[in-house]
Design a binder for these strands. Structure first.
Lengths: 340, 340
DNA sequence: TTGAAAGCGCTAACAC
DNA sequence: GTGTTAGCGCTTTCAA
């Protein structure tokens, strides 16, 4: 603690300080193999006194084992992903594995780059959002020789394992609910979708189901960037002015839905009598709104835990029939914004 | 791309496939040193065809350089930290450095553990939230021999560099504003604070300034966990029932402030005439609220960029007089909830 | 229970 | 411009 050393300490330093061979020091520090209580004490003391921090780089190279799990997600600002991450962390905390986060900003090229970087650290597994990846990314994942779990979505072709919900089905379910409630003039608001495959799939499931019932989306509006709450407000204002006879608004996420809800309530619109509303995600935030927005839970935490469990199981040698696919059922919450 | 290889490819494989020495292959792949255009082409082709992903573990061990920056923050669910991270990422993207995120959940023991783990990968620098760390953590940071930037807060004793705002001053400034506006019966709501030093410091700065003006906090309430928006609602309801003559509510973060605002507006309270409100953080979310909540910007993004710049500069060999301390000035936004 | 030797996959440093 | 040699700091393996 008092050495002004530039060079980080090595096993050798601890070995010399304790008068025990490097090998034995290594064994003590890893709790591996039998070491007498006496030497163990001496080594631990020396290590602590010197402030030795093992070099995982060297350890990983020598042992050919890296206890990292690459977790690749589109964004941290979305609230959805931190929840997935917390599910992952919770599970991995009980193992020797550690998550490492990479962010793609919804850009395939960046995903490819991040993936390459992470794979070059030879992680023990990969958890990656979505089923849509560049050819190169898919190839890397397939070649890596490690468990790969694609999460959030199940509508597509997994490389290996997969945990998520069907967003098409989610869109369909919500449409069915809306139709059953008797709404007819429906508007849609969401993100510009080329970026967001899951939002697109929900939209597809939604519109197709309406179409099958002879209903066509009466108006639509897309945004990108900015405060989602404010965008929800703006888009809603614009849309009900443009299409005043709408009786339902479906938002592709709860945040813009909340913005719309606040706007409508302020303007004295009867929700859900005059206009019904629904969002998507089931974010915690909704609990504090004046009305409970109808929404559909995306099973974020569960996706995280299940994905991590798959990685952990494979890592421990359990090879549950490779290619596990877990299709979770999103839970619908009617709240107070969808009349029954 | 078609080999069903268990063993990951090595430089040697690329070397053999291209008929070029490992050393030259390495040079090509790193763009280091002079290589003829012809061999460069051959090597790149071979590498791509095989799907070679370099092994950074080995590279780092050999070169003694790891281009990772450990970023240690309390939480990802807070919105504040993702913004700091995006500032960091933006700056590091133009360098060879890469951020790696560690989360402490506001727990000193976990911070210590995460720090130890990260340091064992021998990163090129550390960015860590807060100035309060365990003895062991401080020792590790001091010993590591790499640039360390403590962020968010400047009220304390930095180990090395430091970028943040003074939370005491932030609390003081808000108190001054409130006093100047003529409010007298002031309530405070916030997180349970043993965990959150910055919230505590704001509270201290706030109460001391009030005290100096002969005002004492009339009521207070603390929460932990749950939806902050909902908590803001609940606490506000409880507090104004308990202490009906309050004329100002200071919230330790914008989210609970937003909950309080929504509650008061719903209940027909005149804001800011009857009761004034203020939060802290300047989160984007506020833009979508019915009223603009008075708040103070925590300079989150700027903290991220400045911290990353310090690391990047040091990494590049520029040693700006060690121990740089950047004290940013939080910007006050009066909004519509603090009468003038 | 402990130690010595070999080598993980790469790169620095030096030949050629 | 290209190749050779010797490690980086550990762990694996085998011997004592």
């Amino acid at each position: 603690m008092d050495r002004n050393n530039q060079r980080p300490l090595t096993l050798r330093d601890v070995s010399e300080a304790s008068g025990v061979s490097e090998m034995t020091v290594s064994r003590v520090l890893r709790n591996k193999g039998d070491v007498s209580e006496a030497t163990r004490k001496r080594v631990q003391e020396a290590a602590k006194r010197l402030g030795y921090v093992p070099n995982k780089i060297a350890g990983a190279l020598a042992s050919q084992r890296v206890n990292l799990v690459a977790v690749i997600i589109p964004s941290l600002g979305n609230m959805v992903f931190p929840e997935v991450l917390s599910g992952i962390s919770e599970v991995l905390e009980d193992t020797e594995l550690q998550p490492v986060i990479g962010v793609t900003d919804y850009m395939p090229e960046k995903e490819e780059k991040v993936l390459f970087e992470m794979l070059s650290w030879r992680p023990s597994g990969v958890i990656i959002a979505g089923l849509e990846h560049s050819e190169a990314s898919r190839a890397m994942l397939a070649q890596a020789g490690i468990p790969v779990v694609e999460i959030m979505d199940v509508d597509g072709d997994p490389i290996d394992a997969c945990v998520g919900i069907s967003h098409r089905r989610a869109g369909r379910k919500m449409a069915e609910e809306i139709i059953a409630a008797g709404y007819k003039k429906i508007g849609f608001m969401g993100t510009k979708m080329p970026l967001d495959h899951r939002a697109r799939k929900r939209f597809e499931g939604f519109t197709r189901t309406l179409a099958a019932a002879g209903i066509e989306i009466a108006d639509r509006e897309f945004y990108s960037g900015g405060s989602a709450l404010a965008k929800g407000r703006e888009m809603t204002a614009k849309m009900i002015e443009r299409t005043p006879d709408l009786d339902f608004l479906y938002y592709s996420n709860d945040m813009i839905g909340a913005g719309g809800l606040l706007y409508l309530l302020e303007n004295g619109v009867d929700v859900p009598g005059q206009i019904g509303l629904a969002g998507f995600n089931g974010v915690e935030l909704l609990d504090g709104l004046p009305r409970q927005l109808a929404t559909m839970d995306a099973c974020r935490k569960e996706i995280g835990t299940k994905a991590a469990q798959i990685i952990a199981a494979r890592h421990a040698g359990n090879h549950p029939p490779e290619g596990d696919l877990i299709n979770l059922a999103p839970k619908l919450t009617l709240g107070d914004t969808l009349r029954r």
